[in-house]
Design a binder for these strands. Structure first.
Lengths: 203, 203
DNA sequence: GCTTAAATATGACTCTGGTCATTTATGACC
DNA sequence: GGTCATAAATGACCAGAGTCATATTTAAGC
């Protein structure tokens, strides 16, 4: 790696680290780009050579977090247990991870939507969890297919539709939980809903 | 109503109308508060006497829209048809309404979240659809109770849990649809999911 | 109608995210 | 080591959201 590359990488990392620390300390809104750059020992303009906007930083935080979660999930997936159980554990596992830093999770979760909206400013090469399948949904889908194979899930179920529905449930529960200040049990909430989906509501 | 009250009401309405027109014409981001106030014939500071932030306007737009939707829903609810059918029609009805101005819907839908997050700046007296039940969920709940009564829905189903699950599904479908540029059928998407919930996925 | 207090309007000002023409550092080639 | 092209850093600058001390308008009491 050339000197240039090395320095670049270094600066990027420094911006990242400094930002993380400041955000954690004073929150996203209360941290200015000036502060970040001053703390990182660079000029203001330099920041924008690395990240198109201040909010874009969140995007990279999210990416980092998602990578971590992805690994968590992959581990969980390969266990040996009934599909439904693995599903529930998967949700809880991920939620527990988010729970570790609720404030940041909120930020990433809710701000991320705006990033998607404010198109044109999205860092390139990005996947947009939510529309086109996305990793999480795909993982749910293959889990469900497994369930269909071994008879835990009805043959007639379209695994993709079911996966999306599960994702909807997960997403909604997570959102509600992130909104709430009073902490209610995420796992109770989601398990009731997943149970319902398994059993069906129709007579 | 005193002269003061009348003027106040007038100004508020003018800000509202002018904003709506400008947002529609050039989009939310591309409309400045300066433009709004100039067009409305008031000073910049005055704007902030009426609305705490520019984004707060969206909140009131949303409220207005929600009131409209609420009426739509109430009408739909009182029809005579199987619960499931009414449910589906309800979703489609609301989605069709949103479809009329997809851009605005996106804005309200996604920006609203931020408003909730950036607490302290939320106009007082606001309900936050999403956490504590909310009108939509309550409506779904009573619809489901009706279904339990007349045997369309299993006795053992907790109507509130089911209502929240339906809301999750609705929300997710709506979100996906609002994200997508390529227009796929919202009704197809949601009906597949609702079907699934009725039937259940478990063997 | 005059006086006074409170509500409301005002716009100069501040603060911060983001831009861009200019300067500086790097590396390739001789 | 000198020259040149290109990548990267810089900070003065701009635009727009939001603030606030001050000015104006209203309403009430006399």
């Amino acid at each position: 790696m050339s000197l240039r590359e090395k320095k670049k990488q270094e600066t990027r990392t420094r911006i990242f680290d400094v930002s993380a620390a400041l955000f954690k300390e004073k929150g996203f809104e209360n941290t200015t780009v000036d502060e970040i750059t001053k703390e990182a020992g660079i000029a203001k303009g330099t920041f924008f050579n690395y990240f198109p906007t201040k909010e874009a930083l969140l995007f990279y935080f999210k990416e980092q977090k998602e990578e971590f979660v992805r690994d968590l999930m992959t581990g969980q997936m390969s266990l040996n247990a009934p599909v439904k159980e693995r599903l529930m554990d998967l949700f809880v596992l991920v939620a527990e991870h988010y729970e570790k830093d609720k404030e940041l999770s909120r930020l990433l979760f809710f701000e991320h939507k705006r990033l998607i909206m404010a198109s044109g400013k999205i860092p390139s090469g990005s996947r947009h969890e939510g529309h086109s399948p996305g990793h999480f949904v795909n993982m749910l889908c293959s889990l469900l297919q497994e369930g269909i194979q071994n008879g835990e899930i009805r043959q007639t179920v379209d695994p993709m539709v079911a996966a999306k529905t599960l994702h909807a449930i997960y997403f909604h529960s997570l959102m509600g939980w992130l909104h709430s200040n009073t902490d209610y049990s995420f796992s109770n909430d989601i398990s009731a809903k997943v149970d319902l989906l398994f059993t069906g509501i129709g007579e």
